[in-house]
Amino acid sequence: MLNKFYAKLLIMAGAALVLSACGNTNDSAMDQTPAAEPAPAPAPAPTPAPAPRVDTTTQEYLNDIMGGGVEADTVHFAFDRYDVDAEARRILQAQAEWMKANQSVNVVVEGHCDERGTREYNIALGDRRANAVKNYLVAMGVGASRIRTVSYGKERPISTDHAMNRRGYTRVN
């Protein structure tokens, strides 16, 4: 949780940098040299950064929309299953609300499997999972054209814990 908190602070600082850099794009689009302004204050400043600067369209923001340590960009599935269970529905409802509140955001839903299966079948199973997530988001009112699906089968594990790998991951595009 602490790590996540600091990560968020850094992201907010980064977003502020991006915003200030944007003003210069017209006259120096090719210029990669940082402007000769004083460096921004170090991240752990005693006064909190101004709230309006928070970019609500980032992966990190999506990941934490539910708070409480819930990884809100990921839902999990049972072995060889692709049905969206109660916990996954709670997460997908939050994702759908977030997408409706951030109309500029498009996502890629990745379907993943554990490694205890054959490659070709898992490519198909991952596609089922990605589409199960997409269909749920669409049913909750998100435009289908904002969601692309891709299956990686069992090829992109994130853990040696098989249950962690059976997942649908909503990636901000």
Partner: peptide, 8 residues
């Protein structure tokens, strides 16, 4: 195989 809306 060809998948359509999750079905192969």
């Amino acid at each position: 195989s060809k998948a359509e809306n999750g079905n192969s």
